[in-house]
Design a protein around this nucleic acid. Sequence first.
RNA 1: GGCCAGUUGGUGAAGUGGCUUAACACACUGCCCUUUCACGGCAGCAUACACGGGUCCGAAUCCCGUACUGGUCACCA
Length: 550
Amino acid sequence: MTNQELADIMFPDVKHDVDYYEKLYPERNLPEGAVVSRFAPSPTGFVHMGSLLAALIESKVPKETGGVFYLRIEDTDGKRSVENGIQGIIDDLKNFDIEIDEGVISETEQKGSYGPYIQSERKEIYHTYAKHLVEEGLAYPCFCSQEEIDEVRKMQELNKERIGIYGSYAKCRFLTNEERAARIKKGEPYIVRLKSPGDFYKKVVLNDLVRGKIEFPENDMDVVLIKSDGLPLYHFAHVIDDHLMRTTHVLRGEEWVSSVPIHLQLFQVLGFTPPQYAHLGVVMKIDEDGTRRKLSKRKDPEAAVSYYHEQGIPVEAVKLYLMTIANSNFEGWWDQNPTLGIDDFHFDFKKMSLSGSLFDLEKLLNISRSYISRLRASEVYEKTLTWAKEFDFEFAHILEKYKDYSIAIFNIEREQKKPRKDFESFSTIKKNVWYMYDEYFTGELTYDFGKIQNPEEIRKILSTYLEDYYDECDDKDTWFSKIKELSTRLGYCSDMKEYKQNPDSYPGSVADVSTVIRVATTTSSMTPDLYEILKLLGKERIQKRFQKWM
RNA sequence: GGCCAGUUGGUGAAGUGGCUUAACACACUGCCCUUUCACGGCAGCAUACACGGGUCCGAAUCCCGUACUGGUCACCA
């Protein structure tokens, strides 16, 4: 029996030949050097930090080169799929402003002429190529049961041999086509294995974009191509899809480097040109016990990309942080070019760190503070409002009610060369500005006036200030010189230098007097510029807040 | 265990044989600025090139070995 005949028995449903698909999905007509790259997750529902890093680069490089970035869903394993899993991924990408040029664009829609982009819909394509390999004598049906495979493994372990189905362990490799056909006709279940032409004692070389040259022994395992459910294994799907979708660059986690020999061999037996590979270090985290481990979706909330959305950490900040992990020279570049963004930066694979980097939330928050500080007040307002509408209705309502006022609050010490960096996320802004809103300035409030504790003294400072000095129309300099006058009149030192030299000659300084006014109006001794706050609050509110102490 | 990779201060990292008495950033400490808090400036911290051999006039940088860490060895991706 010929291979052709066997192939027909194995794949009765295959209608086309491989040439059909080669023509259906022709070479892309793109400018020289254009990169075609893809994000190819399982539909597990959400994107992990490490994947997001990959997706960021995968989308950036095509953008830089005039190429294509597409989304492919790898759902050949039912166990990894969750309901609405695709939508979750698309939402996460959208949240991070990662634009999909092609591929899966929603739970029900796909776009582009290289599809379908969901692997479970590509069964016929995989079968066509598997059939082709059978015809060529490069693949065969394997009837071994799980038990038999386990048996082989046990024996190999016992004899300290390499584990796997290869050489003489690939029993079904030695069946005749007649035997194969007979067993198939009998209805025996089978899978399709590659008849590996590899030699373990020969070398195969990968030129990885980030890791450089890596040498491995050739693959000699008869790996599974098609599982008993008819779907392909990752290795086979990867090779077929990335070839047919004309992918030029494959970025993925370093957990894949050890299967590169399999992939290279598959490309070779199928007559395809392999893509460029870039294997990225995994994102790590330090455990409580001090050991490093991969950032885990299950254990670490900060691993899920949705966490940042909920925390109101600007997506730009997360991307900025990821970029600093991705390219070591990015941080310095961004510092030099504060007005530019990630899109203006040239990404370079060679500048990637090989080892997995530690995920540093602290540093991310620092970047977030810098990022927010560079925003205009109206942008802070819009972004905070967007966040609040989803996670803090009450605050959202207040923000909408007092729009201009809120923008003015956010504008304190902003839009200048050295803006304040006190907002680390949109979710923490409220705790910085709550006292500016009467709605929040109620109930049990706790005050700490610092050095000046005497209620009578506090009353005196506040009432004197209000009666003799406060004038809504004062500019900042006038305002402060009045505070100084007030201090002097009540016996406090108005000159800080002088006070620092003779702290014992005075009951306190202008700083302490300011603190009393500050705390009386806000309850907090840590606020932005007092002058601005008083001005925004206005006379009426100030009087009301002082009342408590009179 | 086999195969592959990685190892620079608390963290991220620069560095590709002499320019390195090893950048920079985060964190921390102190000082300055300053009406508070931030910001900013300056200084400091951390005795940082895993260890042992080699090559070389010269090594964090090249070679070999050891240790440790990670990855992988599925009809998972």
